[in-house]
Every structure is written in structure tokens, then in C-alpha cells.
């Protein structure tokens, strides 16, 4: 296991100083998760700070999506500590977990729009769940605002099947931001998209962050895409946080495992 400091990358204190970090939003320590004999996470650590874009890179099947699912309580780790917005996710009662989920948006890899609902109903769904006292006018206004922020106000009454892959991703992003979460988790936001649409999505992620002041935890295979949005990277390898740092430092690393991800151009 290569330690962060061992790479000549940033130590935690240096990182904090460099980015002027304020608030710790997600803290993961020594996280373990297995599926039978397949040990996916073997002591993973991570910290996500306010208004930060942290990208996790790793091979397919290395446990990146499982990690995100652990954060929102869709999967349960075997061991370790996981604190989100100062709450211990692993010991949180269901009702409190639901409240926490309103503050943690999740953009799924395949967009996960509800097929049987229009775009409007897709966006209304989380609002009606979390803000049951909200009047219809306010809901309409929030839906429209979220769609305008992703540039798809005209698609409000379309069904998901009528949307292209890129449009679906935008609508899913609008659904994610509609509750104004403090953190957004992105599971491969550029997968299945052409390079131009992927660039549009990366720009959108940055715009959304500016507007809503969110922190983002992003999983991506696409280093070009990740590079355009990341403040910091974590390499997930063999179930651990193998290396962490900014792009400039990782791309010049001599570690062969880091090179495998970042030095493909040279």
C-alpha cells in the first residue's frame, strides 16, 4: 500500500492549507465491504470537504460504486466508520437516514429516471417526499428552476423514453439538485456519452456547484472528464485509497500503479 505522503503528494495538512478547506462533510475510515469471498473494500479512507470536487478513479469492479452506495445507505459496510454531515451513517435510524438523504444527492450511472413518470413528475417525486407541506406553486417553481439550470426547461412534459442519453443525464442531475443537497455523489456521470456531451455534463457539474455551493464526490473512468472537474483525486486500488492528490502531482508520479491511470498520454 502506497501512503499519500510516500508519493510525495500532499499530506492532509498541506491539502487543507492549499485548498483553504472549511468543513469536513464526509469522513470514511477503515471501510471494509465484502461480497462472499470478494473483498471489495479493505480499509478505505476518504475525506470530502465543503465545496470540493473529489474524483475517485479505479478499475472496473474495484468497489467505487459500492463505496457510493455505502455513503447513502444502499449498501452496508462490514467494518469501519462512515460519517456524513457529522452523522454516523452506519448507526442511523431509518427516519434520520431519509432526512440525511435529502442532503446527499445521487446521480446514478444510467440516470435512473422513473420510466412511468414524465420529467416533471420525476422532479416532483423527491420534493413531495421530503417537503410534503410545500404548495403546488412552489413545487412547480422549483421544478422549472432546476430544469432551467440544466438547460432543459422545454422537456418538462416529455417522458424519459423521449430523451437522448445526454438529456436523461441532465434531467437526472436536475432531480438530484432539486432538494438543494450539500453533497452530490456522481456515479460515472460521463459513461455512455459522446465526448461533446460528456464535456457539456462536466461544465454543467461545475455550474451546478457554483450555483448550489455543493461538494461533489465523483466516480469516473474518464480521466479527461475527471480532470476538467476535479480539485483532487483518490485512486481506489485493491480496496484501499492507494493514492490521493491533485492532477498535477499524480500525473508526474513515478509509481507504476498511479502511472497506469494518469500517465497514459506520455
Amino acid at each position: 500500500m502506497m501512503q499519500t505522503e510516500g508519493h510525495g503528494l500532499f499530506a492532509k495538512e498541506e491539502m487543507n492549507a492549499k485548498f483553504g478547506r472549511k468543513k469536513l462533510l464526509i469522513s470514511i475510515k477503515n471501510l471494509h465491504k465484502s461480497f462472499g469471498d470478494n473483498h471489495v473494500l479493505r480499509g478505505f479512507n476518504l475525506e470530502l470537504y465543503d465545496e470540493e470536487n473529489l474524483v475517485i478513479v479505479g478499475k472496473s469492479g474495484s468497489g467505487k460504486s459500492v463505496l457510493l452506495k455505502c455513503i447513502v445507505g444502499l449498501a452496508f459496510p462490514d467494518k469501519g466508520t462512515l460519517r456524513v454531515l457529522s452523522k454516523d451513517v452506519l448507526n442511523l435510524p431509518k427516519a434520520e437516514m431519509d432526512l440525511l438523504r435529502a442532503e446527499v444527492g445521487f446521480l446514478f450511472q444510467g440516470s435512473a429516471l422513473y420510466d412511468s413518470m414524465t420529467v416533471r413528475e420525476n422532479l416532483e417525486f423527491p420534493l413531495r417526499r421530503h417537503k410534503d407541506r410545500m404548495v403546488n406553486e412552489s413545487i412547480d417553481q422549483l421544478v422549472l428552476e432546476a430544469l432551467e439550470n440544466v438547460g432543459l426547461a422545454e422537456a418538462i412534459d416529455l417522458m424519459p423514453e423521449e430523451l437522448s442519453g445526454g438529456m436523461k443525464r441532465r434531467v437526472a442531475l436536475a432531480r438530484t439538485i432539486i432538494l438543494r443537497p450539500k453533497i452530490i455523489l456522481y456515479d460515472e456521470p460521463s459513461s455512455g456519452l459522446d465526448p461533446i456531451t460528456a464535456r457539456e455534463i462536466s461544465q454543467l457539474i461545475l455550474n451546478i456547484q457554483k450555483i448550489y455551493k455543493t461538494a461533489s464526490l465523483i466516480i469516473s473512468h474518464d480521466i479527461d472528464f475527471a480532470r476538467s472537474i476535479a480539485n483532487r483525486f483518490v485512486i481506489l486500488k485493491e480496496g484501499i485509497d492507494y493514492a490521493t492528490g491533485i492532477y498535477k502531482d499524480l500525473v508526474t508520479s513515478n509509481d507504476p500503479n498511479v502511472k497506469a491511470f494518469f500517465n497514459y498520454e506520455t
Partner: peptide, 20 residues
Amino acid sequence: AELGSMKVTEQIDAMEVSGT
């Protein structure tokens, strides 16, 4: 078929994340 496709396209997970 409906619930199966919702399951494989993560719509059920999305619903859970929405607090439902």
C-alpha cells in the same frame, strides 16, 4: 418485468435515495 427493469436500471435505488 416492470419491477425487474426498475431494479436493473437502479430506479428502485433512486427511489430509496429520494427518501421513499
